[in-house]
Design a protein around this nucleic acid. Structure first.
Length: 103
DNA sequence: ATAGTGACAAATG
DNA sequence: TCATTTGCCACTA
């Protein structure tokens, strides 16, 4: 039952939840909005509860830095992004110039 | 308390 | 361009 850490990254989840559909944000951007560092954002995403569109969080380059330990998650994020109207480029990254949220 | 790791980012060689 | 290093913060052993 202790799957979720007692440390609610409320600020981080709030920033991620504030990302509108069809838009994406980088870990660094979320970190700035949440007042935390990109590292902490990544760690918070590992325990992202329901209601948090973690799939809208991508790397600063638009790449899906995910998938290093869970290839399934990368495919899941790719599917979720496509479902929101965010197709990935041939490089496998998101067009930040078009889909990056302002904040 | 210490060391190692991590869904990052920017700088450096 | 690629690989390496450093900074940052939180968690696990």
């Amino acid at each position: 039952m202790n799957d979720k850490p007692p440390r609610p990254f409320d600020a981080i989840y709030e920033a991620v939840r504030a990302i509108p559909a069809g838009r994406v944000m980088s870990y660094g951007q979320v970190g700035v909005l949440a007042g935390e560092t990109p590292r902490t954002v990544g760690w918070a995403m590992t325990s992202a509860p329901d209601g948090v569109p973690w799939h809208r969080v991508v790397g600063a380059d638009g790449y899906l830095r995910i998938g290093r330990r869970s290839p399934d998650l990368q495919r899941l994020q790719r599917d979720l992004l496509a479902a929101e109207g965010i197709p990935l480029l041939e490089n496998g990254c998101v067009d930040m110039e078009l889909y990056q949220a302002e904040g």
